[in-house]
Design a protein around this nucleic acid. Structure first.
Lengths: 238, 238
DNA sequence: CGAACAGTTGATCAGGATCAACTCGAGTGG
DNA sequence: CCACTCGAGTTGATCCTGATCAACTGTTCG
């Protein structure tokens, strides 16, 4: 049950057996969810953090008039509301697929991190990596064209799904609608549709029936001006 | 010297005298900087964190062809490269004004946080608030028009400068060029110029000679669709 | 006095938004 | 089993926000 979490924590280097045991003895409850389920609502002040065990989810905020902005996508192994440990949620999290989350009580988490500072740092680092991704999105939306922007987003998603072991020969489940894509890139649905056709036309990818297939990975990276270093995939530190 | 830092840490509630002393005994060196100075370069892996004691700075990344995106502005009391504690810097920090930073060695910081977990959480929370601001910028750039976007940015800056005690009767030092403004909002310099004229024309603000004057605060907030809750100005937690 | 840079203006262009209609497939209910 | 609905995707036509290009002003500073 804690495999995903331990793996995420150990990206920065192995934990001691004591640390691993401490993590595994967090009183945790696993909960299934359905596609479209609201995992965390805007304004919530949750009493536990959620670890995404299986499935995909996204972070978003909606304006009064209905315009929506997606701020990140999440894959298994991600803590999706760690910030809720200290701040009320200023955005929501919604399930993209069916899946499962593990609920980790705040009190237990805080105790764990107090007694195992190194583990605390790993959790902190997770939120720092999320922040790095937010910054990349600011750049992506602020300074790149629709074509590059969408390609870049797909690159990121594929790399992160790959890291979670969910890409098989360029194919992965990624059941977003074009509306989701628009809301993530700050574009209109119509223009997203046309830009997607261009990407398909270049033979870079296919997206049908909830399945994303990368047909030309170098080409897609080039189209997205993608450099994965902001994902900090294998940093050593602390 | 540590007044700013203690204040920032105590936004979430007072520290104990022991915690305060521990913070104040961090071996810290203060360094002045000039306007335009590069405080942290992209790619750096610094050995200490910087606390902005005085002056303003901004976080940014530059693409190969020269397009630049500013990701945040910073005011006194901000830790500007806390993420450097665990990750190499994937962006740079540049001074907007003259000022002063305090260098806090990583090793000492980590020791402090290990022995005083509550203080560690406060630092962590600082980075979480930064992340909340990044998310707001994603929304701002992705889903708002130029006019609203720029007004929103000014609202944020004013609120943060106010919190740092740097706003006097709606007036504050904010020496950005229109190019900076464009790079922060993802707009062209020309369009930024025209949009600024519109904001001035509505009698909302004035920006001249490095001084920002808010002439109509309710009007500016309305123009920027601004709701400060994402800044988490007075959260109680942990 | 003359760079050099920030700001301003006008003219034109284009990327992407908007509006509207239509297709298609998957349910769903009669 | 078929008609209906509904959501997602697609297409065309038009509009407009904001980009681009270029020239010019004003100020500061060496």
């Amino acid at each position: 049950m804690f495999r995903r979490l331990i793996e995420s924590l150990e990206v920065l280097g192995p934990l001691t057996s004591g640390e691993r045991e401490a993590v595994e003895s967090l009183g945790a409850v696993s909960r299934p969810f359905a596609p479209g389920a609201e995992l965390v609502a805007e304004g919530d002040a949750p009493a536990h953090c959620r670890l995404l065990l299986e499935g995909q989810a996204f972070r978003h905020r909606t304006l009064a008039d209905g315009r929506r902005q997606i701020m990140s996508f999440h894959t298994p192994g991600d803590m999706i509301d760690l910030e809720g440990l200290f701040l009320p949620m200023d955005h929501g999290l919604t399930a993209l697929t069916a899946g499962e989350v593990l609920h980790l009580p705040h009190a237990r988490l805080l105790d764990l991190m107090d007694s195992h500072p190194r583990v605390g740092r790993r959790f902190w680092t997770m939120t720092l990596k999320d922040a790095a991704i937010f910054r990349e999105w600011i750049l992506n939306i602020g300074r790149r064209t629709a074509y590059v922007r969408i390609a870049h987003l797909f690159c990121e998603v594929v790399v992160r799904l790959q890291r979670a072991g969910l890409v098989d020969n360029g194919r992965c489940a990624f059941p977003i609608t074009q509306q989701h894509l628009s809301d993530a890139t700050g574009l209109s649905a119509v223009h997203t549709n046309r830009t997607l056709q261009a990407l398909r036309g270049e033979g870079l990818l296919s997206l049908r029936g909830g399945e994303l297939v990368v047909l030309d990975w170098p080409g897609l990276q080039a189209a997205g001006e993608f450099d994965s270093s902001y994902l900090h995939l294998r940093e050593s530190a602390a």
